[in-house]
Amino acid sequence: MNMIVCVKQVPDPEAPPASFKVDSATNKVIPPPGVKPVLSPFDEQAVEAALRIKDAKGGKVTVVSLGNNLVRDVVKKPLAMGADELVLLEDAAFEDSDSWSTAFALAMAIRKIGAFDLIFCGRQASDWDAGQVGSGIAEILGIPSVTIARKVTVADGKALVERVTSDGYEEVEVPFPALVTVSNELGEARYAALKGIMAAAKKQPIVWKPADIGVNPSEVGAAGRRTRLLKLFQPVKEGKCEIVAGENPADAAAKLALRLREAKVI
């Protein structure tokens, strides 16, 4: 089994909303000081999905990440969890890409990596919440895709995927090679054991520039975008909450019920 997992480094989506700031002059997010970036959460689960198959059937897991100034111990986390290889598409030319230029560069890198049975992506990256790159890679490579998986098992050259639906799930069978995007219903990603962290620290990622994957810098990153970002801003919220107090929580609760009745909410 040869598996490839695409992971993206993002600002921590669980950082307190108050720390989130946008520079409206450049239409960019200002990284909150002291908050370390993370792997997009669904991507960790995509790594987990691949590792579960590796545990069951053996095989090799290659992780690919595209960006610039990638923080080494962030992008090395999949290695610490048990992945075998890390390929970084790292160059200034890859900055500010959109769904198209990201999927294109990742697809070209995957072609260069060569033989694979399954590619895993997260269902959506927690920065732009697009949910497109997985389907895009599959389309460029001409392979089938199954999105929003909660369970993936493999047998006889096929994957059996449970995909989350609005009222439950469905089971879909897909032959290799195929691409699967993973959702949180898969369950928590494993922790990296100390041994894994030590091994990952020693392992050097392979770094590729545009030329290494046979593309022109004008085809990737900001230059290769198909979409234009006109504006990025923070919506203003003018919420005012009426906190109902009482002698103790139970008293406050009773007063809340009364207040809701009075305000005709219930």
């Binding site: 139970a250 019920a257 009364l258 219930i266």
Partner: peptide, 26 residues
């Protein structure tokens, strides 16, 4: 509490039973 219109600060274990009782009464 920045998003809500009404709120109670407290442990649900104390808040919910009293809230349910009062709603029943109302």
């Amino acid at each position: 509490f920045k998003e809500a219109r009404f709120g109670v600060v407290g442990d649900w274990k104390q808040v919910l039973p009293a809230f349910i009782e009062k709603i029943k009464e109302l």
